[in-house]
Simulated assay, not measured.
Amino acid sequence: MNEPTVQQHHTIVDDGFPDYAEEEPMAVSGVLGGLERHRVAILVLPGTVGVDLAIPLQIFGPWPAYVAAEAPGLRNPYSVTLTGPEREPPIGAGLVATRVEPLSDLDRAHTIIVPGRQPVTGSLPPEVRAALRNAADRGARIVSLCIGAFVLAAAGLLDGRPATTHWQCAEELRRRYPFVDVREDRLYVDDGQILTSAGLLAGVDLCLHVLRTDLGSAAADTIARFLVSAPHRESKQPQVLRRPVGLADRSLECTRQWVRENLTDAHTLTTIAAHAGVSVRTLTRRFQAETGMTVMGWLTGQRVAEARRLLETTDRPIGFIGREVGFGSDEMFRTHFTGATGTTPARYRRAHRPLTAVPA
Rank of each mutant, 00 (worst) to 15 (best):
Thr268Met: 07
Glu184Trp: 13
Pro178Asn: 06
Ile112Arg: 03
Arg133Val: 15
Met1Val: 10
Leu215Asp: 09
Pro178Gln: 05
Thr196Pro: 08
Glu324His: 00
Thr282Cys: 08
Leu82His: 08
Pro25Arg: 12
Pro64Tyr: 10
Ile112His: 10
Ala218Arg: 08
Ala307Cys: 07
Ala170Arg: 02
Arg350Gln: 05
Gly33His: 11
Leu227Phe: 12
Ala357Gly: 05
Arg281Thr: 12
Ala170Ser: 11
Gly34Cys: 07
Ala307Asn: 00
Ala109His: 03
Leu53Asp: 01
Val245Cys: 08
Arg138Tyr: 14
Val100Gly: 02
Ala202Ser: 15
Val31Ser: 14
Pro89Ser: 03
Pro64Ser: 07
Arg129Asp: 06
Ala346Gln: 09
Pro18Arg: 05
Pro126Ala: 11
Val120Gln: 09
Thr165Leu: 04
Glu3Tyr: 12
Trp298Phe: 04
Arg243Tyr: 07
Glu88Phe: 11
Leu211Glu: 02
Asp214Ala: 08
Leu95Ser: 01
Ala135Lys: 11
Val128Thr: 03
Lys236Gly: 13
Gly199Trp: 10
Val204Trp: 00
Thr83Tyr: 03
His166Gly: 13
Pro359Gly: 06
Ile12Arg: 11
Pro56Lys: 13
Glu306Gln: 13
Arg87Gln: 01
Thr196Asp: 00
Pro72Ile: 14
Pro72Ser: 10
Phe337Trp: 04
Gln193Val: 07
Cys146Asp: 07
Arg161Ile: 06
Asp19Thr: 15
Ala198Lys: 01
Glu331Ser: 08
Thr111Ile: 11
Leu103Cys: 02
Gln193Asn: 09
Thr164Glu: 04
Val100Arg: 09
Ile55Pro: 01
Leu57Tyr: 10
Arg108Ala: 15
Asp265Arg: 14
Phe150Arg: 01
His336Lys: 13
Thr111Trp: 11
Leu206His: 08
Glu306Ser: 03
Thr98His: 15
Asp15Val: 11
Gly30Thr: 13
Pro90His: 03
Gly199Ala: 11
Asp19Arg: 15
Arg250Pro: 06
Pro238Tyr: 11
Leu241Asn: 09
Thr271Asp: 02
Pro119Glu: 12
Gln8His: 14
Asp249Trp: 04
Asp181Cys: 05
Tyr78Ile: 05
His9Phe: 11
Glu324Phe: 01
Tyr348Phe: 13
Val278Met: 07
Ala307Phe: 00
Gly203Gln: 00
Asp137Asn: 14
Thr341Lys: 15
Thr11Asn: 06
Val210His: 07
Leu263Asp: 01
Ala357Thr: 06
Phe60Gln: 12
Tyr66Phe: 10
Arg87Glu: 03
Trp63Asp: 04
Arg75Thr: 09
Ile142Thr: 03
Ile147Tyr: 06
Leu311Pro: 12
Val31Cys: 10
Val49Phe: 04
Pro126Val: 12
Phe320His: 15
Asp315Val: 02
Thr81Ala: 15
Ile55His: 03
Arg174Met: 05
Val6Ile: 07
His352Gln: 15
Glu88Asp: 15
Pro64Asp: 13
Arg212Leu: 10
Thr111Ser: 14
Ser217Pro: 05
Ala130Lys: 07
Ala21Lys: 10
Arg353Asn: 08
Gly92Phe: 06
Arg350Trp: 09
